[in-house]
């Protein structure tokens, strides 16, 4: 079967100089939750949607606006012109068989749009954190990234790699995407947190706070008060308990 990915532009935008954020579907979905928070809080505009056999289909109504009758699917593009930020939000896991081709197309497409850099947000299994007294966040950066000098001034812990390739266990497609980006010579930063599955909302808040250090999106003084929960986070742990159980 020929793999054809369809990109539908809803608005024409010049993305040159923009930072692209891609969350990897990973343990606890921390990257996705963090992107949800950013999209919702910055009231980002949907500028495109993607249909690809590489993504497990999901569909619902707009997760950021209650009562909306606009459909939202598994892969959408959101833009904030003021912050020069674009997010490619994936709401479902990639199919391994088609993943590499899809991710390569994503990188080529945005490279062609002259974006400034790519940031991958992901997470790793909590039990993979070897030095438990250190911060639960790690980063990987390639030499082209504009954030390299900023990162050197921060007290952040770099990802320890035993081999040449980056391996983030539980991090979904993040490692593969990083390798593709490196191959295509695009500036890239991977930011991840060691987490366990459960209520990962606090992890998402922390992730946004870390991201904000590198890419200023919110006023640093009281960042949490500026973040808005998306509608899709309601009832994350189900509705009210049935009366029959009492």
């Amino acid at each position: 079967m020929a793999q054809i990915n369809h990109w539908k532009k809803l608005t024409d935008c010049d993305l040159s100089g923009y930072t692209l954020i891609i969350p990897s579907v990973a343990v606890g979905n921390v990257g996705q939750l963090a992107c949800d928070l950013v999209i919702s809080s910055l009231h980002m505009r949907k500028i495109g949607l993607v249909y690809s056999p590489a993504i497990i289909p999901i569909l619902g109504y707009d997760p950021y606006k209650i009562g909306s009758t606009n459909l939202s699917g598994c892969c959408e593009l959101y833009e904030c012109a003021e912050k020069k930020l674009v997010i490619l939000l994936l709401r479902a896991p990639l199919v391994y068989k088609y993943g590499k081709k899809f991710l390569t197309e994503v990188v080529e497409k945005f490279k062609g749009e002259n974006i400034k850099d790519i940031i991958i947000l992901t997470s790793s299994f909590a039990h993979e954190r070897k030095h438990i007294m250190t911060s639960p966040f790690r980063y990987v950066v390639n030499e082209l990234s504009p954030h390299t000098s900023t990162l050197r001034t921060l007290d952040w812990v770099e990802h320890e790699s035993k081999s040449e390739t980056v391996k983030i266990l539980g991090g979904g497609f993040a490692s593969l995407l990083y390798e593709i980006i490196k191959e295509k010579s695009v500036p890239c930063l991977v930011l991840y947190k060691f987490v366990s599955e459960g209520d990962n909302i606090p992890d998402a808040y922390e992730m946004v706070q870390y991201l904000n250090t590198i890419v200023p999106l919110f006023d640093k003084s009281d960042i949490y008060s500026q973040l808005i929960h998306p509608v899709s986070w309601n009832l994350m742990f189900g509705g009210p308990p049935p009366r029959d159980i009492y």
Binding site: P57, D62, P63, G73, S232, N234
Partner: peptide, 11 residues
Amino acid sequence: EQPNIITGVSA
């Protein structure tokens, strides 16, 4: 209603 979604072939 949000946050309900559908998945699979129909989606």
